[in-house]
Amino acid sequence: MRRPMEVAKLIGLLLVGLWVLGVIWAGSAEVSAAAPVTLYTSESLDKVNEMKLDFEKRNPGVTLNIYRSGTQVVISKLQAEFQAGGTLADMIWMADIDYFEDLTRKDLLAAYTPPEADKAPAKFKYEGGRYHEVRLIFNTVAYNTLRVKTRPSSWKDLTDPQFKGKVGVASPFYSGAAFSTLGTQVNMPGFGWEFYRKLKENAVIVEQSNGTVAKKLATGEFSMVSVVDFMVREAKAAGSPVDHIWPKEGAILVPTPVGILKGAKNPEGARAFLRYLYSTEGQRLFVQQGYVPVLPGIEGPRGVPSEKLEVVLTDQAYIGKHREELKAKYRELFELK
């Protein structure tokens, strides 16, 4: 059997060549990325990247690496990594406060409160500074201004039969904001599961993400939706025919905390990023991106009333205890398999 000799030589050479190239390539990557801060987040990809650029500009020498996906995907990845004995993440930032409570119970979060953070309302500093609300997001009712002539005023306008089949919401199985909304609304007086049954009768369409809901609202596929506020303001500013209201029952605060993990590989860099988020520059960039700032004295984005907003605070204790039940009921009601 001498036949394959030539072939084998060739293969051997190729393999060695590839190996060398690969090692050089990996080595150069290692050198250039010295001790980055790694952030796992469900923040909007373009917004958090814009933030990264501004942060790195103001903190020379610190690199921020971002893993960005839907809340559930990020948590699944974290869960898997924790089970395997360690995560790459230095800090996490996403729309599932329940998970932060869980991590607190497991003592996996490092407390840190930047000096500026004390100016924010105390209720947005959780568990002694283990995690923080760095800007505010609300779930509200939004509508397409070309398709809806009478400005809605209530969450219940979503069940108006004249918009049957044209109403969209995000899936609580994917979106933390949608899950907070579900967990809050089932306990609101006059709402409960009855409200969701009526939504179903109105042939509501359950999309995966808030972004998709906002997009389909702009294109006119949906007439009225339940969606997070900043996306609507952003689309409106770009020229899309959309607007959102502050429902008379109150907009629902969607907690999206940020926290630093114990065992972070670059804890100083992570603290620097948290300080940046609370800085005047960081807060102003939030406003520019359409978010409501958490620090007083920073002017909010256009379209946000300066008087006190009607806000329903999310009932975290309830949501935390009834997580599985909420999901199971929702799955059954909307026949999501």
Binding site: S44, L45, D46, S69, G70, S209, N210, G211, T212, K215
Partner: peptide
């Protein structure tokens, strides 16, 4: 995919 899933279809 992430951009699409997020609804950032223009991007």
């Amino acid at each position: 995919f992430n951009m699409h899933e997020e609804g950032k279809v223009l991007l």
